[in-house]
Write a protein that binds this DNA or RNA. Structure first.
Lengths: 350, 350
DNA sequence: CAAGAAATTGGAACCGTTCCCACGAAAAAA
DNA sequence: TTTTTTCGTGGGAACGGTTCCAATTTCTTG
């Protein structure tokens, strides 16, 4: 009665048998007499025995648990990916613990060390916007803990990852804006540290080029993804001598915050300025007018990343991606056209 | 070189000292010679030593980690509470792992056992809509692991919890609807299993009673919080011989889904039917027209729950809530009035 | 019925860390 | 100088479970 929980030793003592036998009975080892097994299982149930995963993980160095690290989860993007991951992992008998970094590099490093020190069997990661040093990721690899990245992938690391074609999607989005007759397309880009930022901007640039629209540096701003900055930058755009007639935003929260500024200034969307976002957050369909955006298959991204991680974990000999090419899966996106880019007459009634 | 990570034994061997001394040096025990300490810390750094938390937790039966269990996180409510929890817990030096149940009772039970088997030091919980059996919670208590509930609190358990006054908030919300002249206020309630459902409904009923509006059972429906059901029930309301002129919804996603139905039927909000939600999700301000709703101090709820849990964990002698009253904190709500209940003329321009 | 095979069980090692106890050396007090 | 503290260190138990190996029991089979 010294501790509040039951151990196999308690059970062994009560039944007057050895803890080895109790362990065998509980884990379903075949070489246990039916009579004994039944006695053990019954007593375990009445004593509310529950296996101590710490002890087990400690001795076996594997925990049947994976971690998922996301930079934030106030938009629906990451939660929805997580649900996809849990889906596959639960079916495969793994537990999933979630770590949320609040876009803080410090949190990312400490959470990575937390997961490693708890001997998780694998980690799915999308890094923060502050992350420029990837030592904590290579540390995991050196420890033999498989990593799979999604969405935000460190571009100078050769790691398994699941992404969408940001370049192509951005290209299409901007081409759509040009297609409805816009010539002065602004771009609110994300932080330079994210590979998405660079690829989406390249898509933007190349779409302009293809359609013979000269690149105007005044219409492109990188920012840190905070709402205050969107407002400042969007006001700046609108105060230009010849303001933009369209905006391609790095993501939906950016687009929505920008739309607020446009509406506050009394301008009309899409007549005065058309807007396109990215990711098809839940809010994109709610905002007025409905936001045209690039839909990402979020749940599929999660499921695919989970399956990829399962493959990595099952590899008897750990794959060494310093010498061989890491697997990459690219999932399709889809441009969802809503009122924020629908020219008059074509607009759906609401 | 047999295993991929460094242990204190490796360090001890290399320096030709005992593992006890290494342990002391690493944990900052005062009785270690400065020279020795320096040597250990240096070697630990170059060997990338990292403490095995499993071993530590296993021997000390405490892990400096707390768990938080939420039923879902596709709305902004739970993520925002979690951020509040992390805020306080990180400052207090605790790690936070998040478990998401997808509103599944099974997940809840298995995640609870997962957290217990990993010896977390405490758990913050909001239970799923399916949860009717609370054995997995009492199990935690019997193990001596403190629990703090928020939002959804099991009502026949005496447990520390952080809530808002659902009754009062609902009462005010419905009174507001009556105040703008509505007589036929419908209520889309949640599942009977949630205490919020019952309290908000009681607030609804009492507000009607206070203003002499007879209760009409046709205008109240409980449902399971799935989007499909909202559509069916809302259509049902609108097809009544004398349909409602206002709706009080159990939460914002419900209100927003209901608004879709209203708009699809060509009815105007708020002219034909005014709508009030609950919780002030991020989407409440985005939807058109803006949704009147009861704001909850989500981050504060998280912070308060975290502080309450810290108190519970620090209690030398575990509080036994079978004999004494558990602490409860009730935080204030605020009715946010937006276009969905603004009668003509008063409506803000958009 | 005895010998060998198979089934069942007990004993002990192991996993990494902390912590208590003991011991010698050095420092302080007598 | 001798005694008492203090300091720094080493040794070993403990934590809970699995697993290998050996020992014991039970079952086959000649």
């Amino acid at each position: 009665m010294k501790s509040k929980y039951t151990t196999i030793i308690d059970i062994a003592r009560q039944l007057n048998i050895s803890k080895s036998t109790v362990s065998r009975a509980l884990t379903g080892h075949p070489n246990v007499k039916e009579h004994t097994r039944k006695a053990v299982l019954e007593l375990a149930a009445t004593m509310e025995y529950q296996r101590n995963s710490l002890a087990l993980g400690f001795s076996k160095h594997t925990t049947n648990t994976i971690g998922i690290m996301v930079p934030e989860f106030m938009s629906t993007y990451f939660p929805s990916v997580i649900v996809g991951v849990q889906d596959v992992m639960q079916a495969a008998g793994y537990n999933v613990v979630i770590c949320q970094q609040n876009e803080s590099y410090e949190s990312e490093v400490s959470n990575m060390k937390l997961l490693l020190s708890y001997c998780v069997d694998g980690i799915i990661v999308s890094h923060t916007k502050e992350t420029r040093n990837f030592d904590h990721f290579t540390l995991a690899q050196r420890r033999g803990v498989p990593l799979v990245f999604f969405n935000r992938v460190p571009d100078d690391m050769n790691v398994p990852n699941v992404v969408v074609n940001d370049y192509e999607a951005a290209f299409q989005a901007v081409e759509h804006l040009i297609g409805i007759g816009r010539k002065r397309v602004a771009h609110l880009a994300g932080p330079e540290s994210l590979v998405n930022t660079r690829q989406r901007r390249q898509g933007y640039l190349d779409a302009l080029k293809k359609h013979g629209i000269p690149y105007n540096p005044d219409l492109v701003l990188s920012y840190d993804l905070t709402t205050e900055k969107v407002k400042i930058y969007m006001k700046h755009f609108l105060d230009l001598e010849t303001p933009p007639d369209a905006l391609f935003a790095i993501n939906d929260p950016t687009a929505i915050a920008a739309m607020e500024v446009v509406k506050a200034k009394g301008l009309r969307i899409p007549e005065d300025i058309a807007v396109v976002g990215f990711s098809n957050d839940f809010s994109a369909q709610l905002v007025y007018p409905g936001l045209t955006t690039v839909a990402q298959p979020t749940a599929d991204i999660g499921r695919t990343a989970a399956e990829m991680l399962l493959t990595e974990m099952k590899a008897k000999v750990k794959n060494d991606y310093t010498i061989k090419k890491a697997p990459t899966v690219q999932l399709p996106t889809k441009l969802i056209i809503r009122e924020s880019t629908m020219i008059k007459g074509k607009a759906k009634k609401r």
